[in-house]
């Protein structure tokens, strides 16, 4: 597959109270962002297990974007403390094993940050597009 044809598949895990609402705001504000992202709404970004992220990569995701409330704004007070712990750990583990840590990104996006949401999705999609198909996917096809 040449780079021109490559359309990244990106999976988003967004928290119900902030990022998902931010996505809604982006929508009603008619802000444009690429349609490469498929979204799973979760009650708190802290419920996203590293296993979910790895499963997404196993199933062929080229990128995984996790969105949660800013630190201090968590609907469950400190749920996102766990999010950052898990993501930072997983990114480093992926780096060690060569499983492309850059394909996993965490961003705090509040319900009021519609433009930030759209910009994050645009930037992440472009980044993944530049990276090309995930190594794991290519290895499996070979």
């Amino acid at each position: 597959m040449s780079d021109q044809e490559f359309e990244p598949k990106i999976l988003g895990f967004f928290c119900n109270w902030c990022t998902y609402a931010g996505a809604d705001l982006a929508g009603v504000s008619r802000l444009q962002y690429p349609s490469n992202i498929r979204v799973i709404r979760v009650m708190c970004s802290g419920t996203v297990s590293p296993h979910h992220v790895l499963k997404a990569f196993q199933k062929g995701a080229d990128g995984v974007l996790i969105g949660g409330c800013h630190i201090g704004d968590c609907h469950y007070l400190r749920g996102n403390y766990m999010t950052i712990k898990r993501v930072r750990f997983l990114q480093d583990l992926l780096k060690f094993t060569g499983f492309e840590p850059g394909r996993l990104h965490l961003e705090w996006i509040s319900a009021a940050e519609g433009p930030k949401f759209a910009q994050t999705v645009r930037d992440f999609t472009e980044k993944i597009r530049k990276m090309g198909p995930a190594r794991l996917k290519s290895a499996r096809a070979a």
């Binding site: 802290g46 950052i84 965490l106 961003e107």
Partner: peptide
């Protein structure tokens, strides 16, 4: 264990994209 508790503060920051 860090996985057993949320912690009193978030000491880590997100990595830039």
């Amino acid at each position: 264990s860090p996985w057993k508790m949320l912690g009193e503060e978030a000491t880590l920051e997100t990595k830039p994209m």
